[in-house]
Measured scan of single mutants.
Amino acid sequence: KRPMNAFMVWSQIERRKIMEQSPDMHNAEISKRLGKRWKLLKDSDKIPFIREAERLRLKHMADYPDYK
């Protein structure tokens, strides 16, 4: 399994928030909203998620050196 990218790290947190506020919302609608919100997010606000994704990528490389 591939490591999460910055969007996936961010969306995992945000998806939980949306599901708590709107438990009846369909997953497809949540995904659309997350995509739009990520695009509107300032680059500076994305930095912590980019760093976490990089950390996960490096850990994945160390844990699975033969992964292609």
Rank of each mutant, 00 (worst) to 15 (best):
Y64P: 13
H60K: 14
E52T: 04
K36N: 14
K39P: 01
S22T: 06
R2E: 05
I30V: 14
L58R: 13
K1W: 06
N5A: 03
H26K: 15
K36I: 15
I18P: 00
K17R: 07
A6G: 11
D66A: 09
N27V: 12
I50G: 06
A53W: 00
E54D: 07
R16I: 08
N5C: 09
K59H: 11
D66G: 11
K59I: 12
A28T: 08
K36F: 12
I47H: 06
R55Y: 04
S22P: 02
M4P: 13
A62E: 11
M8P: 00
I50S: 06
R15G: 05
G35T: 15
P23Y: 01
D66W: 06
L58W: 07
R33C: 14
A6Y: 01
E20R: 05
P65W: 04
K17W: 01
F49I: 01
E52H: 02
M8N: 08
R57G: 07
N5T: 15
H26T: 15
R16F: 05
L34F: 02
K42Y: 02
W38L: 00
E29N: 02
H60S: 14
M19R: 08
S44K: 12
R15C: 05
I47N: 06
R33P: 00
Y64F: 10
D63L: 08
E29M: 08
D63H: 09
V9N: 03
P23F: 00
F49G: 02
M4S: 04
D66R: 13
D45G: 04
K17Y: 05
Q21W: 01
M8H: 14
D43E: 12
W38C: 01
D66M: 09
H60Y: 08
I13M: 08
S44M: 07
K32A: 11
L40F: 06
A53M: 03
K17P: 00
L58V: 12
E52R: 06
S44L: 04
M61C: 12
E54K: 05
F49A: 03
S11G: 04
I30G: 01
R57K: 05
K39W: 02
D66P: 12
H60F: 09
K42M: 04
R33V: 15
E20N: 04
G35A: 15
R2N: 10
M19T: 06
A6F: 02
R57S: 06
D45V: 05
H26M: 09
S11H: 02
D63I: 09
A62H: 09
R57F: 14
R57P: 08
K36G: 05
M8Y: 12
D24E: 12
K32F: 07
D24I: 03
I18H: 03
G35Y: 15
K39L: 07
S11N: 02
I47G: 08
Q21N: 05
S31H: 09
E54A: 06
L56F: 03
K17T: 05
D45A: 08
D66N: 12
L34R: 00
H26D: 15
N5F: 00
S22D: 13
H26L: 11
E54G: 03
I50Q: 13
W38I: 00
I50M: 10
K42P: 14
D24F: 10
M61Q: 15
K68Y: 10
Y64V: 14
D43W: 11
M8I: 09
M25L: 13
K32T: 10
P23E: 03
R33A: 15
A62Y: 11
Y67H: 06
